[in-house]
């Protein structure tokens, strides 16, 4: 039985220092305290700078005695994160987990991992070998991935989805802006425009 009181407390704590930490958390389903979504700002001075990375967090039923399950939803080019699945290789999310760690400290560790990859303990062998052999090439690939997948938060994502439905890019942008980024309302208006 997980400690819901602690989870609620953690959630409020996380919300406190949005500005300084560059972290944000949310619960997509308010009734399910065990499923979180988080975003991490790419650390300054790394190829991830300027990117916003979405993380999916599942808290196991015996949290905090068992580590949370975290994975990147935003694609990222990093030696310790799978470029395919977003799976993370980080000791504190496995055997080094301690119940004194929190979601917030774990997310900060992820941010630190983005600043300082550990290519000797890789999750993605291709990225890790590139990181070791050709740092310049690694940086430019990671930067390119950041620009492609992690720039501009949810808005780009929404635009992409709407564009995939067959609307013009400019029209989509205008609609999204009109409804403050609300994807569903924008879609409704676009559909209404069609009719």
């Amino acid at each position: 039985m997980s400690d819901l009181k602690r989870i609620r407390k953690e959630f409020t704590e996380c919300k406190k220092d949005l500005e300084t930490s560059g972290l944000d958390v949310s619960m997509p389903d308010e009734s399910n305290l065990l499923h979180w979504k988080a975003t991490i700002k790419g650390p300054v001075g790394t190829p991830y700078e300027g990117g916003i990375f979405r993380i999916d967090i599942q808290l196991p039923s015996d949290y905090p005695f068992v580590p949370p399950k975290m994975k990147y939803e935003t694609r990222i080019w990093h030696p310790n994160i799978s470029s395919e699945s977003g799976a993370i290789c980080l000791d504190i999310l496995k055997n080094e987990w301690s119940p004194a760690l929190t979601i917030r400290t774990a997310l900060l560790s992820l941010q630190a991992l983005m600043s300082a990859p550990e290519p000797d303990d890789p999750q993605d062998a291709v990225v890790a070998s590139q990181y070791k052999k050709n740092t310049a090439e690694f940086s430019s690939t990671a930067k390119y991935w950041t620009e492609t997948y992690a720039s501009g938060s949810n808005e780009d994502d929404a635009i992409r989805k709407l564009v995939e439905m067959g609307f013009e890019v400019d029209v989509c942008k205008r609609a999204l802006k009109q409804f403050g980024g609300d994807e569903n309302k924008a879609l409704d208006s676009l559909l209404a425009g069609l009719a």
Binding site: R6, A100, T102
Partner: peptide, 9 residues
């Protein structure tokens, strides 16, 4: 009183 690192109380 101190904050318990596990339940955060």
């Amino acid at each position: 009183p101190y904050q318990c690192p596990i339940c955060l109380e």
